[in-house]
Nucleic acid binder design. Structure first.
Lengths: 337, 337
DNA sequence: ATCAATTCTTGAAACGTGTCAATGACTTTT
DNA sequence: AAAAGTCATTGACACGTTTCAAGAATTGAT
């Protein structure tokens, strides 16, 4: 167990002043070649590692941003995380990734924690309405960007997808493929993204005139929950079943697909059309390749970081704070007779 | 822009001493009801958030551990991350998740960064040999647990899977299903996990006597790379193709499956048997449900955190430091004629 | 050789918190 | 009623770094 070694110990070994060691760490150009070598040797010898807490305390700031995601095991968020990571690295920032596990408590804990950490800014993806909490945080001086949800307040920067259009595209396509009894599977409907997708879906149904839509509400948008929905649908008399399903995300869609096809022998797309949302990589490789609504994944993370860095730099002037990305339909076998 | 507000400002507003506010934050039971209320009011009014840097500096430690993963978008690591998160939360710890994006540079940067942060300990999953670097870090006082790779040094705690057995199970099964010309798809072979799987596979081949195995080396174990392999295999004359494939992970397997089946009309399992590794959730929902080698995902993260906390507590006495989990074969349609 | 300008080096002060020994206010015991 | 405890509160100090003003050393120009 080595004794604590700080800048002072290094200075002593290298026979220079403590201030010089600090310069070596932060402005190496201001230190002469000779002392640089001595200091480097001392650092190696002692195994010195700068104490970030002290450094931050003195500087009053860090070079770190945070990204809070509700569910890292959803490839949608994982892909965004990679974009965030890359763009942040390009800007010389480090990223703390936090997984709130869809728990509001853990989300709050992380929000609090990152504030205490004095991160430069936070990217927050959430399933809950969270804008008021973010407002408090911004008021206290930490910039935030809402990810995946369009901000209502015009001061809150956000990167989101036009989910109304996404829902519209999905159901319009189902109807074009001869679906008439549409089922929307998703929830909780209180979540903005989900509500928007439903709204777009509803619009497509109304436009068609001769189609109907039922809503199957679920609490979690996971593969497991999709399987349950499949079982529920399969247990109905065939005449009562929908003939086309729009699932609020790809995980749900994959679960439904697997349940219907494997467990209950319902054929896709022959007996049932199916569209998902997000276009995660696994959708293309599923039992029946999944038609989905594609949103620009990498661009998502990049745009979010750009927005945040602008916010940090405080270049407020007339900047557009709410980026809304347009989704597109990707047709695959699950809706192609 | 609110003036910086610290414990001192809170104390002034609440008309108590600064030390009392500190007690309020850390030992509320030592503060009288009356002052507790006053202080809480002052905190709310001023929007005070404790400065973690100062707190850590004074305490000399944090309540945070780090988990460095090579690739969050691989569900295998994402699932482990969830287990880590949960078990850490149960122990009152927070987790900083970092994504090294398979880049050794970023990995080193994060290792350095978390040391500087004085985290309590680090969980590290890597594709590279990393034990010597972890040794340095441990020497400097930060406990580490190697995740996914068995440690060679007996002092380095690790949680891993018996990959030799895993590879053996996979190929033994392929041979039992009448595969004779086996192809192992994976790489770089220098990676311990991959090398072990290959070794187990080779053992199964030798035992069978009448089977052969070729090795198709790849650099990345991703869906995209799997597609390339599929194209390469499909371009051979049929007599030259393997009749059974063991892919070093599920992502590769899914890419291969998709490439063979969708792009080149090769049937699985009729023309080609296919086994993956890791048993990620999407494997069961793929075009042809994927036979795979299952490793206990949640248990992985939990075991890693337990090992780390033991290490942190320094309860060294005769504890087993290298946990090796046993994999099992999960048979699905991709190998079931 | 001298002076000015430049480059290096120095040590003290400050960042915001937790801790600790000391003090004061009460309560209980004798 | 005095002594001995208990509990709340206080304010100074230390944690390890960065910064800053000032001093020392070096360089270049005259």
């Amino acid at each position: 167990m080595p004794a604590r070694v700080g800048i002072r110990e290094v200075a002593a070994v290298a026979a220079v002043a403590q201030g010089t060691v600090s310069h070596f760490l932060n402005h190496p150009d201001r230190v002469s070649e000779e002392k640089r070598e001595r200091i480097q040797r001392a650092i190696d010898q002692l195994g010195f590692v700068r104490n970030d807490a002290a450094s931050q305390l003195r500087r009053g700031t860090s070079d770190t941003i945070a990204y809070i995601a509700p569910d890292v095991s959803n490839p949608f968020f994982a892909t965004i995380a990679e974009g965030v990571e890359q763009q942040a690295a390009a800007n010389g920032l480090s990223v703390f990734l936090a997984n709130s596990n869809r728990s509001r408590e853990r989300e709050d804990a992380y929000l609090e924690m990152f504030q205490a950490h004095r991160v430069l800014g936070m990217l927050v993806a959430s399933h809950d309405p969270i804008e008021d909490r973010l407002l408090h945080i911004r008021r206290r001086g930490t910039p935030t960007v809402l990810v995946g949800q369009r901000a209502l307040g015009s001061d809150q920067p956000s990167v989101s997808v036009d989910d109304v259009t996404g829902g519209y595209l999905a159901v319009q396509h189902l109807i074009a493929q001869a679906g008439r009894r549409i089922a929307f599977v998703g929830g909780p409907l209180g979540i903005q993204q989900i509500g928007d997708r439903l709204e777009g879906a509803g619009r497509a149904v109304r436009e068609a005139g001769d189609a109907t839509m039922e809503v199957i509400n679920v609490d979690n948008r996971t593969i497991a929950e999709g399987r349950l929905v499949a079982a529920a649908i399969a247990s109905r008399p065939p005449a009562n079943r929908p003939d086309a399903i729009f699932a609020a995300n790809d995980l749900l869609a994959l679960g439904i697909m697997h349940g219907l096809v494997v467990d209950h022998g319902i054929r896709i797309p022959a007996d049932m059309l199916l569209v998902g949302y997000d276009d995660i990589e696994f959708g293309a490789a599923s039992i029946i390749p999944l038609t989905s609504i594609r949103t620009p994944h990498e661009g998502f993370g990049i745009a979010a970081v750009d927005l945040l860095t602008a916010e940090i730099a405080n270049s407020d002037a007339g900047r557009k704070k709410n980026i809304v990305l347009q989704p597109e339909l990707v047709v695959r076998a699950s809706t192609r007779g």
